[in-house]
Simulated scan of single mutants.
Amino acid sequence: MPTLAIATAIAATGHDPDLPPLLAACQALGIPTRALAWDDPTISWRGFDAVLLRSTWDYTRRLPEFLAWCDQIQQHCLLLNPLAVLRWNSDKHYLADLAAMGVPVISSRFVEPDEAALPVLEAWLATQPAGEFVVKPCIGAGAEDAVRYSPGQLFAASNHLAGLLDQQRSALLQPYLASVDLQGETALVYLGGEFSHALRKEARLGQVDHPLPERIALSNASPVQRSLAEHALAAASRLLQLEEPLAYARVDLLEASDGTPRLLELELIEPSLFLDHAGAAAHALARQLAARLAASAAVRTRTACA
């Protein structure tokens, strides 16, 4: 029977609510499965047929090391999601790629380390409707180093932006959409390319680096939201020339001032899938993994016999 490793991180031990239902679902299908930390140097990964990335939540602070580890994994077994996806999705410049392919993305100004923070910020704000805005790094997870500012906090915002640029980190400027305070984000979860469930996530991005508690509840995705999410996934698939659907994806949307949804994030590396909120989702993911493992094992057998 092909074996599966679910990759987490030492720092995430005991903090991933997706892990228990997924392990139970894999066990119910008879898939030999272990949850192991990607950054545990004592683990021998060659004994597994596939590695599913899940709560590798520290990867943004160790990106070169993480991608090198993923490269090693993919050389000898099935990596889900694949390395090309991880390289692209680990940097928020991917939003510009999707926007260029017609995906409705939240207005974004990318700022590079060779630019001057204050002039860029002033020029960008002059093109935006008056209101709050967000400064965040292009490589980062969740609310890490992402801060919400009011128009009167130009000095603080420019210092934050300059600090990111001084660290040779590209940054991103985006308007803060007021709808998030009333409606939160809508997260659409796709498993094996098929829509699974949607959730409402209350915003946790406070002002001046004071994150707010995040509250999650199952929600309904409208046809317009579904259409946008599937547009984004199809665009990513074309761009990356993927031969099969992603094992999982989470599409985070916000409502713009005109009432239409906009893409906030396309999460393809280690998003929480909120399996504990959707009872059938863990089993659907496990069934998909079993099929992928069987197909991968069959290919290896044919190759070995050739």
Rank of each mutant, 00 (worst) to 15 (best):
E115H: 10
E115L: 14
L121K: 06
L121E: 01
E122L: 13
E122N: 08
E122V: 15
A123S: 11
A126L: 02
A126C: 00
T127G: 06
T127E: 09
Q128E: 04
P129G: 03
A130T: 09
G131R: 07
E132L: 10
V134P: 01
P137Q: 07
P137L: 04
P137V: 11
A141T: 10
A141W: 02
G142C: 12
G142M: 12
E144A: 07
D145Q: 13
A146T: 11
S150N: 08
Q153L: 08
L154D: 05
L154A: 11
A156F: 09
A162Q: 15
A162S: 14
L165V: 01
L165S: 00
L165G: 01
Q168T: 05
S170Q: 12
S170D: 14
A171N: 00
L172E: 04
L172F: 04
L172I: 13
Q174G: 14
Q174H: 12
Q174V: 09
P175I: 06
Y176V: 11
L182T: 07
Q183T: 06
T186I: 15
T186W: 08
L188R: 08
L188G: 05
V189F: 12
V189S: 04
Y190C: 07
G193H: 11
F195Q: 07
S196Y: 04
H197Y: 12
A198Y: 03
K201I: 13
R204C: 05
L205G: 06
L205R: 14
G206P: 07
H210R: 12
P213C: 05
E214F: 06
E214A: 15
R215D: 04
